[in-house]
Design a protein around this nucleic acid. Sequence first.
RNA 1: GGCGCCGUAGCCAAGUGGUUAGGCAACGGUUUGCAAAACCGUCACACACCGGUUCGAAUCCGGUCGGCGCCUCCA
Length: 496
Amino acid sequence: MSLQLYDTLTGQKAPFTPADPQNARVYVCGPTVYDYAHLGHARCYIVYDVLTRHLRTSGMRVTYVRNVTDIDDKIINRAAERGEQPDQLAARFTEAFREDMERLGNAAPDVEPKVSEHLPHIIALVQRLIASGNAYEADGDVYFSVESFEGYGKLSHRNLSEHETGASGRTDAEQTARKRHPADFALWKSAERSEVGWESPFGWGRPGWHIECSAMSMEHLGETLDLHGGGLDLVFPHHENELAQSEAATCKPFSRCWMHNGFVEVNKEKMGKSLGNFFTARELFRHIEPEAVRFFAMTVHYRAPLGFEFEEVAGGAPRFPGLEEAERRLEYLYKTQLRLRELPAERIVPEGWVPDAISGFPKALKRALDDDLNMPIGLAALSDLLASVNELCDAALRKKGTAQQAAVDAAERAFEALQRRLGIGFQEPREVLERIRDRRAEARGVRREWVEQRIVDRAEARSNKDFAAADRIRVELTEAGVELLDSPAGTTWQIA
RNA sequence: GGCGCCGUAGCCAAGUGGUUAGGCAACGGUUUGCAAAACCGUCACACACCGGUUCGAAUCCGGUCGGCGCCUCCA
């Protein structure tokens, strides 16, 4: 194992070394479940899914914990707007989130702790911080004192005295008045008896935003994590505050490595809920194969911005150039797999030479991911692999051509490596290809039965050597957006 | 105001002191009844600009311009 990862805390790449080499303890901040997952969530959790797959495939055991924040003001407010119980709304979106993650090919985490099931742990941690002198009560609220923790600011590399508190204009004046220092943050917020809340030694209230992750990660993974991850927007204040309160409480390093993925951008601007420029994952799934969204997320390094484009089309379905390109590349992968698996057995001869791009793929992929999870380099290796496998198939399908058994086997091992490390290529090729084609046909208003009937008509014309009639049918279908692909095995079709 | 990131061929995107990244588009070829797919080749000695360091800089240093992010809603 020789994975190098960029660590936000040090600002440098370093070997990833879990305290227990037999078990990497990874905690990733999960969603606040008051809405559907958007493309930003999709990207983030794809990154950590690849991380855990890569570690496991390289022989490391991983305990992957990703929480669900099911207690939050946004959930309560959204529930009130909809006349729904907050816990019901949260449960609904938790389930939707799991479905979306599964469709993206993200394996479920080993533990998915919920805030609502960790109130005792949260309260105990707050008490511990009060006892250690790092937190104080004020009118039923409890605040963490940033001045009590010497390292405050070390993760986000900012200086308490220099940073302009409230520069984003979102601070709450009433709360600020109760704080000893403007940067102090709430561990516990008092609530009216009529509001959603829990009994605590500090009174009726709810946990603050950051404390739940500290409490849950310690409960499930211990006081020092091997890796803590999340979106770049969590560096400050969320992770900075988690780090401060955790290290203040335990006097131990909170995480051995901090990993943050870059944003998804729309027109060079961050995709975000506040800007209203986001697409939910399931909205995109209506237009694009979910696995293509996964592929798209891998075309860029995880710390770089992922540029997303869409075009409104008057009277038609919107276009997503980047996602569509990713989907075409995914089709190419599955078409290649299908060709390989359908090579006639009599064309495969024993032994033989294996092209480097095929035999070397598993190692090339590992090497790419070992270098700070460089997925674009991994995909470059995939391009070489696919070209090489197609060359192999071309050679075998030529008259009197053959393919070497060793090369076919090596290609299968390469596809396994792709699936295990990147989580790409996990579906049945024929099913994916048909689903993509049928979805495009539907979007174009093309009926499958009609196309198939015309293919039969054309086959009859061709068998009578009436090529003029056959070509008229091809033109007719082409005008409808249907491309015909003749092969020795018959005619298939796709949407141009 | 503070801290930080980015600017690479038509487009997207890796790399980051000396050696072909890769994809998409376009064009040429092999193949095909026609066509597509697939494969091969070309576009590609590209790295915002100005200085400096160096035998050598897209890569390191300084500055300039342009774009973006965070500074208690955010993945």
